[in-house]
Every structure is written in C-alpha cells, then in structure tokens.
C-alpha cells in the first residue's frame, strides 16, 4: 500500500480532515503529503481560513438586501381574503 497521494487527492482529503471525517490511514497519508508539499499546505490553511470566515458574510450582506417593490406588491395583493 502506497502512502503517497497526489495534490489532487490531498486537497480532496483536506476537507474531510477539516470536518473531522478522515479515517486514520488516510489522515497519515495526508499528513505525509502536507509535510512535503507547501502548495497543498497553503491550500489547507487557506481553505480553513475560508471556512472560518464564511458564516459572517450572511449577516453583513443581509443589511443591504431588499426584495424588489414589485414583488412585495404582487405578494401583498395575493395575500388578501
């Protein structure tokens, strides 16, 4: 069994590790790869960075999102007895 994985596979496994879903042997494979590959190491760090900053986008964007008036009028006129 080879312990070597490609960058393509390593980046695929990185999400599984981030979510705590990587089986032991694959974790070893990924760690060996990351120890020797600065690009995938950067990918994993940047991916974790994206993961930890994404939730905040929702509240920040919501401040400026408004349903168009034409939609509001249409819905309002449909919601009449």
């Amino acid at each position: 069994m080879s312990l070597m994985v490609s960058c393509k596979e390593a980046t695929y496994l990185a999400s599984q590790m981030e979510e705590g879903k990587l089986p032991f042997i694959k974790k070893i494979k990924l760690k060996i790869h990351l120890a020797g590959c600065k690009f995938c190491k950067m990918f994993a760090m940047q991916s974790a960075f994206i993961a930890s900053h994404s939730a905040q986008t929702e509240a920040i964007m919501a401040e400026s999102i408004v349903l168009p008036d034409t939609d509001k009028q249409r819905i309002n006129s449909a919601l009449r007895p």
Binding site: F39, M42, F43, Q46, F49, H53, T57, M61
Partner: peptide, 27 residues
Amino acid sequence: VPKAWAVDSSTDVVETKEFYKVLNECK
C-alpha cells in the same frame, strides 16, 4: 498553484466589510 496570502490566520486585516463582500461574491 496556490500563492501565499498576506494573511494566513485570522487577523483584523480582513475584518472589513469589503473583504466579506468579495468572499460573498466568490461564494
């Protein structure tokens, strides 16, 4: 190939609305 980012950990450099707008556009 990934390039090094100016910030690789959470620092206040990215705690701006502009950053989150870009992240949201990418999303």
